[in-house]
């Protein structure tokens, strides 16, 4: 870990201002410190935002929720309003990490966690994300964790969050505050960037810009499922995950929101699939066609080739489960 200065910010404006001068935010620290110890990340100034007033969950006028960026993953998963209205979110949160980590990790930090690519984590290995232009060791190396969608010739890393996948399916937005105190709101999907030629740039945040809140729209009708497929029963990153909110009325799908984890550089959502499903009757053939839409551009890298059939099968199983039964 490189030496750094440490400042504890008293309010959001101060935090954004200091960060605008080049400092890095620290909240839960569960990923940042992990990476700083390996000198994968080497900030020279940390601004501690844990004392900011961003740890409340409040109702919005639209019937949704406004979640402070500092609300811990544990508190978010335990919140009764969240559990009742958006059960997809606690399901995703609780499938990630551990009790200890969720007690520290925050809503904002979870969104901004870095990839778990083995080579990104090893400063002696080439990695375009860590050291632009050095190459990608995961291509031609081990890439079990890596992306089949949205990757580029420069980077095939995945985004590891479960929470972000659920939020993407739920149509969440993020509230941001800039260095000058101005605010803006982005759909979660617009927070992230695909790697392209610049995998080191992962988000559309401006320098110093702070995530202050995540906003959930009002609950939608439908069965909510988060299915995470991984190498251990617990405490492992997703190989494939599917977040779904599906409703069936009069024998046809009336609501479909889908997002995917473990397969792309960002929580993946394709509204084409959702539009395709709406108004159709559930069937195995329909799931196949939905999977075709999802995976038409999918490309394996060797040790992650299995994710293509796995994503297909998992999507079908989730859609089956979501449309099964007589309570629709």
């Amino acid at each position: 870990m490189r030496p750094f200065d440490y400042t504890r910010a008293q309010d959001s404006a101060e935090a954004a201002r200091i960060a605008g001068q080049g400092a890095t935010f620290i909240a839960g620290g569960t990923n940042l410190l992990d990476l700083m110890k390996l000198e994968v990340m080497t900030p020279d100034h940390l601004v501690d935002i844990t004392h900011l007033d961003l740890n409340e969950i409040t109702q919005t006028e639209a019937g949704g929720l406004r979640i402070g960026a500092l609300v811990t993953n544990s508190d978010l998963a335990a919140d009764m309003a969240v559990r009742r209205g958006w059960p997809l979110l606690p399901k995703a949160l609780l499938s990630g990490a551990t009790g200890q980590l969720r007690n520290k990790a925050t809503t904002g930090g979870n969104l901004l966690q870095r990839t778990r690519c083995y080579y990104f984590y090893d400063p002696d290995m080439p990695c375009n994300k860590r050291e632009p232009g050095s190459g990608c060791a995961a291509m031609g190396g081990m890439n079990r964790l890596h992306a089949i969608l949205g990757a580029s010739d420069a980077c095939i890393a995945t985004h590891p969050s479960d929470m972000a996948v659920a939020l993407r399916a739920l149509g969440a937005h993020v509230d941001l505050m800039a260095e000058d105190g101005s605010t803006r709101t982005l759909p979660l999907g617009d927070l992230y960037r695909l790697p392209g030629d610049t995998p080191e740039v992962e988000t559309n945040l401006k320098p110093g810009e702070l995530i202050t809140h995540v906003v959930l729209p009002a609950p939608v009708h439908g069965r909510q499922i988060y299915r995470k497929v991984r190498d251990r029963a617990s405490y492992a990153f997703a190989l494939v995950s599917v977040a779904a909110v599906i409703d069936v009325e009069s024998g046809v799908i009336s609501q479909a929101k889908l997002a995917f984890g473990g397969i792309a550089p960002m929580p993946w959502r394709m509204t084409e699939i959702e539009d395709f499903l709406i108004g159709k009757a559930p069937s195995e053939d329909l799931w196949e066609e939905a999977a075709d839409l999802l995976l038409s551009d999918a490309r394996g890298q060797g040790s992650n080739d299995f994710k293509i059939p796995l994503a297909r099968r998992t999507l079908a199983a989730v859609l089956n489960e979501a449309t099964r039964g007589d309570d629709q």
Partner: peptide, 16 residues
């Protein structure tokens, strides 16, 4: 435990 909650002591700074 920090304020009664379990955490990983390795992933937090003493100064916080």
């Amino acid at each position: 435990l920090i304020n009664g909650r379990r955490i990983n002591a390795c992933l937090t700074l003493a100064c916080m």
